[in-house]
Every structure is written in C-alpha cells, then in structure tokens.
Design a protein around this nucleic acid. Structure first.
Lengths: 140, 140
DNA sequence: ACAAGTATGCACCTTTTGGTAAGTGCCAAA
DNA sequence: TTTGGCACTTACCAAAAGGTGCATACTTGT
C-alpha cells in the first residue's frame, strides 16, 4: 500500500473484494469514472466550477465543438447523477442556467489532482498521442 | 478560483485559453482522461498499483468480466502511453508481466482522490445508476 | 493421446457514443 | 415581415468501443 491507486475501503483487501463492492461498481474509482465518463463532462464540470451558474448558451459557446444534442444529453446525465442543478426561470424567451450541486463541487475538487497530473505531463502525453493519431489516420 | 476544477496553467485565464492549450488537449483534465479512458483501464491501473508486477493471466482473473481482446488492447494502449511496462521473459510456455512505470505510478496517485470520492459517494451514485439502468432496460 | 494453460491475434458483430441537420414555439430587433 | 436568438427535440447516421469465439505454438499434467 505504498503507492497503489487507493484502498477502496479497507487497507489491504484480497483483490477480489474490490471487484464486488456494490451493485454495479468494482470500486470507488469505477463509480467515479462512470459518472464523469462522457466526452464533454469533465469540461462541463470544469466550466461550471469556474463560472458558477452559467446559462445554457454560454456553456455551449464555452465548450467549443460540442453539439446541442450531446451537450444537453450530458447535462441531463450529470443532473440525473446529482452533480449539476438545472434552473429553469420559466421565462420567455427561455432562460435556464446550470450550476454544480454540493456533490458536484466535491467531485470537482477530487478532479483537481487529475487536472494537475495532466497539466504536468501534458507534453509527454500529447507527444505520444500525436504519434498514435498520426499513423492511425494515415495507415489505418 | 475558490473551488474550480483547477486552473490549467495560470491562475485565472480567460475561459477560452483553457480550450487551446496543446495540440489536442483542452486542459490537463482532458489529457488525463484521454489516457485513462477505457472501460477497464482504471481497474488495470488499480491492480497494477496494488500488486506490482503481475502476470497477464493473473490480471485477467483479477479484472473480472474483461475479455482477452479488450484487456490486451487496453494494456497495449497504456503501454504506448508510457504508463505500463510489459516484460516478456521469452519463455515457453509464454511468461509476461505488467507493471507501472514511474509515470503510471504518478497517475495512480492522482487517481486516489477520485477513488476516495467514489467510495464516499458510492451509495448515492449507485442508487441513481440503479434507477437509470432499471428503466433503461425495462422500457428502452 | 488429449485436455488444459500460457499470452496473444484475428474476424466478425453488437452496443454505445457522438455528430448532423432540421424543426419547435416564442419573442424582439431590423 | 423576415431574421435571429433562446433552449431545446427529433430522426437519422457514422464511428468507436467493446464482446465472442476460434486459432496459434508450445508444454505440462492425466
């Protein structure tokens, strides 16, 4: 237990224990990743954490290259997962904004080290990725 | 900057800056998630961090329900990304083991808070997921 | 001789995910 | 009156991800 990803609950459980924690999840990490999985979810969380309540349109423009369909979709999932709160002001023309819930904020904080890791190693990572995508697109 | 996901590089950059950091990545978080994206990668990292060098077969049995094809595939990607080291002992019958590189270890550590978050909120998350999967499978 | 285990590879298929383009109802500005 | 913005929704489609099952080449156990 010097530098493992973490102990899910107890210090050093027999490996199998970790694969049978709750209904669907193998461990905390698994649970977390299912919630943040989605091409734009981290970005959404990112902007929401940064800019507090933000209107749909602004978010849409902040997260570049995302389509309405997918953005809405991911927002709905985040909302269903209790990370994001949607506020509909019932005005016309429509006004809606999104913000993080308490749970969402806590997740955002847990993401900080990942963010840092990525920033720190972005050069390495992007070099490797560039190569891979290079010969993926060229030679299939 | 009280509780945002993180500042990618500078303290409080205009939002757009974050979407244009390096070739493919929007921010550190994005870079990280591309590397750990994959149904079994976190688990793989998890076991590798926990059990040090581990043989393919053992890993296969530890990460339940994964198919050979996908496990190999994800190991290859992790290897290509410099997170995992593959050691082939060139024996017959084949003997190969996998371990984390230094980079892999650092990532594993960055994953610890996520793991903790998941563990802490697993009840909430799994409840919500259970519902979703419930009516997904029943009513399409 | 035959089954099983070792670490993969390959062909094929299904599911999941994401993307495009169009449309909705309503209002304000041009 | 046409145009455009708002916050979506829908139908349809393409790509990516993941899964199944069989094959390999060799050895050990029965």
């Amino acid at each position: 237990m010097s530098d493992p990803v973490s102990a899910p609950t107890r210090p050093s459980p027999p490996v199998q224990n970790c694969t049978r924690n709750l209904p669907g999840f193998t461990c905390g990490l698994d649970a977390t990743l299912r919630v943040v999985a989605g091409k734009w979810k981290p970005l959404i969380l990112y902007f929401l954490a940064q800019d507090g309540p933000i209107r749909y349109g602004e978010l849409r423009r902040a997260v570049r290259d995302v389509s309405d369909k997918v953005l809405i979709q991911q927002l709905r999932e985040l909302e269903a997962d209790g990370l994001v709160k949607r506020t509909d002001y019932k005005e016309v023309p429509p006004r809606v904004d999104y913000s993080l819930t308490t749970l969402g904020h806590s997740l955002a904080q847990a993401l900080v080290p990942l963010c840092a890791w990525g920033t720190e190693h972005m050069a390495e990572v992007s070099r490797v990725f560039a190569e891979r995508e290079g010969w993926n697109r060229k030679e299939g």
